[in-house]
């Protein structure tokens, strides 16, 4: 290779991956590697990031990376973690010490909220020393924007289309951080790609803790959400500023740190820049769904305490 003044060879997540321009999940992947460093084993299920970063025989990763089927990433990471524990016990040569390796899962919302929830629950229940990170783009993007249980109410996807009768997705987003916390996790956090330093700090903090940890990060998808690629970060900021996606840390089931907001914006500001919510502004009856979404933001604000006095 010719001399590379951009030093791509030093990256732990590399250019040339095939994610769409403006991809929030690709940005998440970069931030994860920046926070974990090289001594990391990343387990990744099927999903956009798996498909776009490892088209055979290429890989965008500079850390150890393993692909497994959709439902298995947490189980595989738990297995690897246990193997390293065993290597330690047997003084097996050629392997690093368990405490020097980060065991991480990076999975999409489909693999986390729906298909992989069984193995995730098992991993958390058994208490493996694994950090599970979910990049949440609120639908199955890789297969063509099908709704997942992370899709918010009112969002149009190919399997919850807006039409004459329908206003898009008609059920609420699953509260995955609370499900994780209910397993007795010491550390659960949410984040957004609009606040990269906050996310990286959370990853670093989580890796200090022994046992299972769960972090969920909001990662816009320009293709699936029908917005311009340049607006990805703006949208990831607006979702927090409207209260629809509060970012917080939860330790031992209690919220210990919340990003507070001075003037919470109305949810319309976040919704109107995305094509997936377009029908709510154009169709008669859409205002009821808008009200519903505003109620969610208000209830988040009250429950989690995001409004600054």
């Amino acid at each position: 290779m010719t001399e590379d003044k951009f030093k791509h060879e030093e990256d732990l997540f590399c250019s040339g991956h095939r994610a769409c321009p403006g991809c929030g999940a690709a940005l998440t992947s970069k931030l994860v590697t920046e926070a974990t460093g090289p001594q990391t084993i990343l387990s990744m299920p099927t999903g956009c990031m798996e498909v776009t970063t490892t088209p055979y025989p290429e890989s965008a990763w500079g850390i150890s990376w393993i692909h497994n089927i959709f439902e298995n990433s947490a189980a595989v990471a738990g297995g690897i973690e246990t193997a390293y524990r065993s290597f330690d016990k047997r003084n097996k040569e050629g392997y690093m010490n368990h405490e020097d390796v980060n065991f991480v899962v990076l999975a999409g919302d489909g693999a986390t909220f729906d298909i992989g929830i069984r193995s995730l629950s098992g991993m958390m229940e058994r208490g493996h020393d694994v950090l599970y990170i979910c990049y949440d783009n609120e639908a199955y993007m890789n297969t063509g924007i099908q709704r997942s249980s992370s899709t918010p109410i009112g969002a149009a996807t190919t399997t919850s289309p807006a039409g004459k009768e329908s206003f898009g997705e008609d059920v609420h987003k699953k509260d995955m951080p609370s499900i994780a916390a209910a397993h007795g996790l010491e550390y659960v956090a949410t984040a957004s790609v609009a606040y990269p330093e906050d996310f990286k700090k959370k990853v670093e903090k989580a890796l200090e803790i022994e046992g299972p940890k769960y972090i969920q990060i909001f990662a816009p998808c320009p293709r699936g959400w029908r917005h311009e690629s340049k607006n990805s970060i703006e949208i990831a900021r607006l979702v927090v500023e409207t209260g629809l996606y509060p970012i917080f840390e939860m330790e031992n089931g209690k919220i210990t740190n919340v990003k507070k907001l001075k003037d919470r914006k109305p949810v319309e500001e976040y919704l109107k820049v995305q094509g997936r919510f377009k029908h709510l502004f154009e169709k008669e009856g859409g205002e009821e769904v808008l009200e519903e979404l505003q109620k969610i933001a208000d209830s988040n604000a009250e429950k989690i305490g995001i409004d600054k006095e």
Binding site: H8, F13, A19, P21, G22, K30, E228, S229
Partner: peptide
């Protein structure tokens, strides 16, 4: 998201157009 912007040794930020997908972020 494409690791196409880097700080060079002179402390300037430059864009590697070999990889930049032009998202506009």
């Amino acid at each position: 998201p494409d690791m196409a912007v880097k700080e060079t040794e002179e402390g300037k930020f430059e864009i590697d157009l070999e990889y930049c997908k032009g998202c506009g972020i």
